[in-house]
Design a protein around this nucleic acid. Structure first.
Length: 898
DNA sequence: TAGAATGAAAA
DNA sequence: TTTTCATTCTA
């Protein structure tokens, strides 16, 4: 959609040309950049090579800064190009959090409509509730600013930087400039991204200047954390403590981390990090790293054996394919699973983290190694895998039919070759996935105790992938690490830690999956991609169903979804890939169930909140997203895919932003998400009540105060008052801009209907509650801007309430809108309130006590009539003037109080 | 790519 | 006071 941010840059010019779609901000992040399909394949390949080298250098020497600086330069370029996005304000956060809900309720509704509704909700939202979002926004902003000290919100009208040289890169506009970004060559920038992408921790990225938005911060934080983790893992001590120590919020911490030394190694902390990094990097390039990991991790002999087995097997498996797992392999898996369980038990929080870390670290290394090795030697990967704690990861990678070269390349190549049609799509890798999946499943199953079964499901992998993917996308290892631990560390403070750890442990247990996932996004997951792709394809249906059923609000639903999904999936999977996956993993179903539990857990924890949103989205247009998404693979997206993917054929494309952001952000993002998720998400019902009022407001504002519905007074007076005030304020605004409301009226009527239902549900109260009245009177806020744009002109309504010709047209549109929007009458009807028949409405109105109520009822009626028949509307009602409304306010208030 | 919303920041 | 732009995603 958007521009394709991803993957779109033309290979040739690419880089600069800019295509960084709109969102550059996130993209610019190296990790993201890699992940992002955006880069041309060619470029990516080259970049990869470069990256391999670079990371090492950085890690190795303190000089890193210098080198990194080079990187930074690039990054700077990115930053300049992509620059950090300005932080979201409270409203945007609210929108982000609730848009999915809105969409769920009103699938037909387009974004604009959803936005309007959200605005309504926002208007209605209690101040307290709003405050939460406001606070979050503030915190977010603070963190952002900390990370990007010099950040300017507006590049200023002129936008100095952007236009000229970089112009291209910044397609959009702003380059807000981060202070530091010297010019960069586009080409360089491209390279850097990859380099950056090198999983590891390029703190270089962290540069405040470079740092993009929050996501960047998060990334930086993650990297730091991961580094710490790694170091800790090596030492086995919990490095995370540092993070924990700080009482600051995760966001701040992240910001600090990113801002401070992230690049080179700033303080002592950094030193540790760097050291850890160095280890990783050093190891990464060469296999040695793998050994380190194992050492760090305390593996039981059994575990080691299992790893060896798995690793050994993997190579053959790759060719042989996923399906047939040898008994030995299975045994290994089981061993691993048992180990995993043990690990979990141990891990509790601290230790567990280390274990997970180990796994992660191991995974990470492999990735790097893989990249480098891929270029160099395929075998290395296998060796690394064997050595590395993550058994599955290597095998899977190596296993892929093709040489274990760079995943990215492979993916790209494959994609290009195999799937000429869809660039993004993937090729499927068979064996590797199957292996990994099977392993993961088994592990999970073991952990849960469900082992045994076989069903399995591809989905599990998906979910896990999806989950992990977000974090891991760029570099699998990183992702793994980041997800589990970063969050843990960050949150250490919070209870979440435990939960997270558990999740992480789970993840760790599934290192394979994680790796898979991680790679998916950015790089590629060639194998994963394939797998995912397949999976996505398969599951979509089931997922959709699940998704559909699923309500973002309740986590519990997820389970249900999963269940539902599982069945469909199974059938699907069987249909599709009987060959590979199913066979391979016998126990998938059970695993699936396990995953389902995990999924639930994650959701409950809030880790998957984004998923929810994605899911919602997925419902909308899952399919499209699936394709693009796969590449970009987002955590959430993955989820969405896994779960929802099937459902929506439309597309999921989640916005680039997601793709971009998620990949890199990984755990950090998760934390952010957690916070974000922690934000209250109100059920539509909640808003319905309120919304009713709001809608009314809008309607009123536009022309007449229609709302009839018989709102109930049941609502609390305080809320009503608040609403009233809000409405009044908005109303004022409206007056200012008085144009353009008409549309709203139409729109709102439907809304009103919705609200009305809610009201009814609460109680059949009749008299229009004060709120509604208030609401009716008051316009909703949104209109202002429209006015600017100057749409206003045609909207005007005559005093009569008639609509100007233009309005008539609009009215028509409105009617359309009604049709489109679920809220409208349909919803109302569903809820028990139907105004379809104006007459009935009138009756109600007439019944309504009090002149005011009656008045409103009439007005509402009038609106309804107007919608259906302008003429009727005209005769039916005279629209109250603003003054009238104001006059009525007191009455309304009193009513409300009553 | 425009646009729908709100809000923060800059000009 | 007016513009920009943050998010999301359809038309």
């Amino acid at each position: 959609m958007k521009g394709g941010g991803g993957g779109k840059e033309p290979p040739g010019e690419g880089e600069v040309s800019g295509k960084r779609p709109k969102r550059k901000c996130l993209q610019w992040h190296p990790l993201l950049a890699k992940k992002a399909p955006d880069f041309s394949e060619e470029e990516e390949e080259e970049d990869e090579e470069e990256l391999e080298k670079e990371p090492v250098l950085c890690a190795e020497s303190s000089v890193q800064e210098g080198e990194c600086g080079g990187m930074e330069d690039d990054s700077e370029e990115y930053s300049s190009e992509q620059r950090a996005r300005r932080p979201m304000n409270a409203f945007l956060l609210f929108c982000k959090r609730h848009r999915s809900l809105v969409r769920q309720e009103h699938p037909r509704l387009d974004n604009r409509g959803a936005t309007k509704i959200l605005a309504d909700w926002w208007a209605v939202l209690d101040p307290k509730e709003k405050q939460k979002y406001t606070d979050m926004a503030k915190e977010y902003k603070d963190a952002f600013m900390k990370a990007n000290p010099g950040y300017k919100w507006c590049p200023a009208t002129n936008k100095p930087v952007k236009s000229p040289s970089h112009s291209v890169s910044n397609s959009r506009k702003k380059v807000w400039s981060l202070p530091s970004n010297p010019s960069k060559d586009p080409s360089v920038a491209k390279k850097q991204p990859k380099t950056d992408s090198t999983p590891q921790l390029n703190f270089a990225m962290a540069d405040p200047n470079k740092m993009g938005g929050l996501s960047m911060l998060l990334l930086a934080g993650e990297h730091a954390l991961t580094a710490r983790e790694i170091s800790s893992s090596s030492s086995q001590t919990g490095c995370t403590d540092v993070a924990k120590h700080t009482g600051k919020s995760a966001l701040f911490q992240l910001a600090e981390i990113s801002s401070s030394p992230a690049q080179s190694a700033g303080g002592s902390k950094n030193a540790e990090d760097t050291s850890s990094l160095t280890h990783v990097e050093a190891s990464g390039p060469s296999q040695p790293s793998s050994p380190d990991l194992p050492k760090s991790c305390v593996k039981s002999p059994l575990f080691q054996l299992a790893e060896q087995i798995s690793s050994s097997r993997s190579p053959s498996a790759s060719e042989g394919r996923q399906c047939g797992q040898s008994a030995l392999f299975q045994l290994a898996e089981m061993c691993l699973a048992s180990e995993a369980e043990k690990m979990e038990a141990r891990s509790s929080q601290p230790s567990g983290g280390s274990s997970s870390l180990c796994a992660q670290s191991s995974t990470e290394i492999p990735d790097r190694e893989e990249q480098k090795e891929a270029s160099e030697l395929p075998l290395t990967t296998s060796s690394s895998s064997s050595t590395s704690g993550s058994t599955s990861s290597t095998p899977t990678e190596t296993s892929p039919c093709k040489t274990p070269k760079k995943k990215k390349k492979k993916k790209e190549n494959k994609e290009s070759d195999e799937n000429p049609a869809s660039p993004k799509k993937m090729k499927k890798r068979q064996s590797p996935e199957s292996d990994l999946d099977s392993v993961t499943f088994t592990i999970e199953a073991v952990v849960k105790g469900a082992w045994g079964s076989e069903e399995t499901p591809k989905k599990k992998p998906r979910p896990s992938e999806s989950e992990s993917s977000p974090t891991a996308e760029q570099s699998p290892s990183v992702k793994k690490k980041t997800k589990p631990k970063p969050k843990k560390q960050l949150k250490l403070k919070d209870d979440a830690m435990q939960e997270e750890e558990e999740d992480a442990d789970k993840v760790a247990n599934k290192p394979q999956d994680v790796e898979m996932i991680t790679e998916e996004a950015p790089m590629t997951p060639k194998t994963e991609c394939e797998d995912e792709f397949d999976v996505k394809v398969e599951p979509p249906c089931g997922m959709e169903d699940a998704m559909l059923q699923f309500s973002p609000m309740e986590p519990t639903e997820v389970d249900e979804k999963e269940d539902s999904d599982a069945k469909p999936l199974e059938s699907r999977q069987e249909d599709k890939d009987p060959e590979v996956k199913q066979e391979v993993c016998g126990s998938r179903k059970s695993e699936r169930s396990c995953k389902g539990a995990l999924y639930k857990t994650l959701v409950s924890e809030g880790m998957l909140t984004s998923l929810r949103a994605n899911v919602d989205r997925g419902k909308r247009g899952s399919m499209r997203g699936s394709v693009s998404d796969h590449e970009g693979s987002w955590n959430d997206e993955n989820w969405g895919f896994s779960q929802a993917a099937t459902s929506n054929p439309k597309k999921l494309k989640k916005s680039k932003s997601k793709d971009e952001t998620t990949p890199g952000l990984g755990k950090l993002e998760e934390e952010f998400e957690k916070k974000f998720n922690s934000l209250p998400q109100y059920s539509p019902l909640t808003f319905d009540k309120k919304s009713v009022a709001v809608t009314k407001k809008k309607k009123n504002s536009t022309s007449s105060p229609p709302e009839p519905p018989k709102t109930c007074k049941g609502s609390s007076s305080s809320q009503k008052k608040t609403l009233f005030h809000k409405i009044v304020n908005k109303y004022k605004h409206r007056k200012e801009k008085s144009s353009g409301t008409d549309k709203e009226v139409a729109m709102f009527e439907p809304v009103a209907t919705e609200s009305s239902p809610a009201v009814k549900s609460s109680s059949p109260c009749v008299s229009p509650s004060p709120e509604p009245q208030k609401i009716l009177d008051i316009p909703v806020g949104s209109q202002k801007r429209k006015a600017r744009k100057n749409k206003i002109t045609h909207l005007v309504r005559t005093a009569d309430g008639r609509v100007s010709p233009a309005e008539e047209d609009k009215s028509k549109d409105q009617t359309k809108n009604q049709d489109e929007k679920p809220f409208t009458q349909e919803t109302l009807c569903n809820r028990g309130v139907c105004y379809t028949d104006p007459r009935s409405a009138e009756a109600d109105l007439t019944d309504a006590p009090g002149s005011l109520p009656a008045f409103f009822s009439l007005a509402a009626l009038a609106e309804v009539a107007a919608m259906e028949n302008v003429h009727r509307a005209q005769r039916a009602v005279s629209i109250p003037t603003e003054a009238q409304v104001k006059d009525m306010a007191p009455v309304l208030i009193s009513c409300a109080d009553q």
